[in-house]
Write a protein that binds this DNA or RNA. Structure first.
Length: 327
DNA sequence: ATGGATGTCGAATAGAACAG
DNA sequence: CTGTTCTATTCGACATCCAT
């Protein structure tokens, strides 16, 4: 018997966007070594959908996302970033209809032998409208003797309109595609499109790497905070002394620490952040160069041209033409 | 006493603003 | 476009503080 047809539908098969504020529960089961980018993208999709719904209809959150693991507590991603999870046994709403994503990772091998986890999965499976394994997550389902249950409209359905269509009819869709398709079905294509755009990676510019701090664990909290503050205020006429105050240091000490930890002076960092933003705006918008310069904290279009010549041996308009994207 | 972190001072330099 | 002036930024040298 196909259990999915015995269940109360949430909205997966509704033809028109759902207009109520019904809450859909999304559970994501994690195991050590799970792929953080995929899980983060799924969370981001549902959170973004919630914020857009709240902004447009003055309604409440539509999706309630929970991170679960066999024993709860800290789970390490493949990139050694830790996330906090709830214990699957103690998690509330056991018999509520919900959607379940099962993340992969090396920890799945061990989880396959965990009888307690298998029993939980067997109990939850009948109430899960979608059971979507990610990578090794499929092994866990197989070990428990349970089938996957993908989004019906994505898997074998009409994929031409999907925002992130599966690669073929015989291949299971990606979890991110499924999450987007769920949002599209529940809230409409327009809102799903906005969500998809908001999670799409920003274009790389010649300055992207010089203002990316994520992979620099040796940077102290204060310096990191001041660097973030500089990035967040590229559009304002800020001084290095202001940044030093954010770091709660004297200007001299801030300068010394910033350069030794980040590898460039604060003013150079600020300039690169401004040029990075300028490059993105040149590619993503049709605004005149002068407006872009001013919105990026650069005094004028002429000054931006000077900087482009100095750092990129080109001009803003030439850079725009070379990197033009369809708008 | 020693070494590391931080603060003060002053000179050099770059960039912005402005006048001609 | 060029020259001048002013201001901000950077950096070296040295002093001070504090933990060991």
């Amino acid at each position: 018997m196909d259990l999915v047809h015995t269940l109360p539908r949430i909205s997966r098969q509704s033809a028109v966007p759902m207009q109520t504020n019904a809450l859909t529960r999304i559970d994501i089961a994690l195991f050590n070594g799970f792929a953080l980018p995929t899980v983060a993208a799924i969370i981001e999709i549902f959170q973004k959908a919630n914020s857009l719904v709240a902004a447009q209809r003055s309604g409440s959150a539509r999706y309630d996302v929970s991170l679960l693991s066999a024993a709860g507590g800290r789970i390490a991603s493949s990139s050694s970033v830790f996330v906090w999870t709830d214990d699957v046994q103690s998690h509330r709403g056991t018999n509520q209809t919900h959607l379940l994503f099962i993340a992969g990772g090396a920890g799945v091998q061990q989880a396959c032998r965990d009888e307690r986890l298998s029993n939980w999965l067997r109990r939850r499976h009948p109430f899960s409208e979608i059971v979507h394994p990610i990578a090794e997550g499929l092994l866990l389902l197989q070990a428990a003797g349970l089938p996957s249950r993908y989004c019906p409209l994505l898997y074998g359905g009409n994929e031409a309109h999907g925002l992130y269509p599966a690669k073929s009819l015989t291949e299971a869709p990606g979890a991110v595609s499924t999450a987007l398709r769920i949002v599209e079905e529940d809230l409409g294509a327009d809102l799903a499109q906005q969500v998809a755009e908001s999670i799409a990676p920003q274009p790389n510019t010649p300055f992207t790497s010089s203002v990316t701090l994520n992979a620099a664990p040796q940077i102290s909290e204060k310096i990191l905070a001041s660097a973030r503050w500089l990035e967040a205020n590229v559009d304002r006429p800020i001084s290095i002394d202001d940044a030093a105050q954010v770091a709660a240091m004297s200007e001299r000490n801030f300068l010394r620490r910033f350069k030794s930890e980040i590898g460039m002076t604060p003013s150079d960092y600020l300039l690169r952040a401004r040029l990075n933003m300028s490059c993105r705006m040149l590619i993503e918008s049709r605004l005149p160069v002068d407006k872009i310069a001013r919105r990026c904290g650069i005094s004028s279009g002429g000054q931006l041209s000077k900087l482009f010549r100095k750092y990129l041996a080109t001009t803003p308009t030439d850079y725009r033409m070379r990197n033009e994207v369809a708008l």
